[in-house]
Design a protein around this nucleic acid. Structure first.
Lengths: 220, 220
DNA sequence: TCTTAAGCGGAAGGACTCTCTCCGGATGGA
DNA sequence: TCCATCCGGAGAGAGTCCTTCCGCTTAAGA
């Protein structure tokens, strides 16, 4: 099925079962903690020994690769679909929103998109596919007069960085709070506005803010 | 002079010299790398042994405290001054801009502001002073009709998080690029706009963006 | 100049982290 | 039954960082 096992002889039943367990656990742990998660934690979460992880995946990169190759295809497809929205502005908003939502739901995906496994061929290709897609959406929106004309293709990534960061900052206090800041940013990206557009999500209260600050950094 | 040496007998000349060297080095290293910087690095940078650091400052927290107590006073003063601007909008912009600029120039300051030394009395007080200042600026700007009325006091910190993050993302490629994103955010914060306000800073080019991505995360 | 308390550098201890290897014992499947 | 295959998890190895300690050096007062 998966790349690593293409034409080799099939694994023993228990081995294959464990392989799937490891993949599932890795998916979950990487999603929650990003690629910085250790393989020990994944093994524990899968209910197998670390050795079992390393027997199927020669190193951490191999595991990450096996997991995220098809995941990146999904990302490209999702963005493509978003950009295809008949309304250029809605298309761009949807593209940004879905990119951020995906990266928040899966912090490992964020790491992969931003090049934590920089030297890997397939990942590089997928990332390269994303750029012209976004460019198309940006150009169309500027031509339609809805996106500020001084917006550049290269602004897309920094906006993702901003919003994923604010998302992990507010996550514990309110998992959806990032949407509020997405709306603010989008209100900054449109060409003109007669008034504020609805933020859609309430602000944190003071207790939530303090909570967010408290979790944000390792204490000293 | 400084808190720790108030009424004790004066240090030997060489000891006092080294103490100053350590403080200067710590100021520089913490500014560049944040509080995560190790004391070894500071000692090396000061040209003294690690023991010398620990002889003057019982632990890392003591060093951080000695450094940032007066620094936080400056922050409060700067924000107060910014907010006092006759134009409510300009005042708020200046407050946000100066807060971010200070945190970018000094990553240790950012860590302190966001509570990395959470349990320290003086820091907590200073942070508490900041809030009503910002509140005053926010209320005034909303009443003047220039700031979107759905903006909340608690949005200020997340905006700082967003912008300091984008700043460290783009820092190597273009140290001033964050100003571009500040402008975008501010355009999202104003009540209404007839068109885009000048971003003031050019976008990254593709090479710079790739560079920024490459540095953003530890490779795998 | 002599004396000595004070100060010095940096090696090393201790407590972590994470990646990856190894091996004695267990087991699926022919 | 039998053995190739697979298992768990201890632990090696290479980091990190904070902190302590000790033998040597030096400033400064008598």
């Amino acid at each position: 099925m998966t790349t690593t096992q293409q034409s080799e002889k099939p694994l023993r039943a228990d081995a294959e079962r464990n392989r799937q367990r490891v993949l599932a656990a890795a998916r979950e742990v990487f999603a929650r903690r990003g690629l910085e998660a250790g393989l020990d934690e994944i093994a524990r979460h899968a209910g197998v020994g670390t050795g079992t992880v390393y027997r199927r995946f020669p190193d951490k990169t191999a595991l990450v690769t096996a997991l995220f190759e098809e995941r990146l295809d999904q990302v490209v497809a999702t963005v493509k679909e978003a950009i295809a929205h008949p309304d250029p502005w809605e298309g761009l908003c949807a593209a940004l929103e879905s990119l951020i939502a995906m990266q928040i739901e899966d912090r490992g995906l964020k790491d992969v998109i931003f090049g934590a496994v920089g030297d890997h061929e397939t990942f590089r290709e997928r990332r390269a596919e994303l750029l012209p897609l976004v460019q198309q959406g940006v150009c169309r929106a500027i031509e339609a007069g809805v996106l500020r004309p001084d917006f550049a293709l290269t602004d897309f990534a920094p906006l993702q960085v901003m919003l994923t960061q604010v998302a992990s900052f507010t996550e514990a206090a309110d998992p959806q709070a990032w949407r509020r800041y997405l709306r603010i940013v989008l209100d900054g990206l449109c060409t003109r506005r007669d008034g504020p557009t609805p933020l859609g999500h309430p602000a944190l209260d003071l207790a939530q803010l303090e909570d967010a600050c408290g979790r944000h950094l390792p204490h000293c």
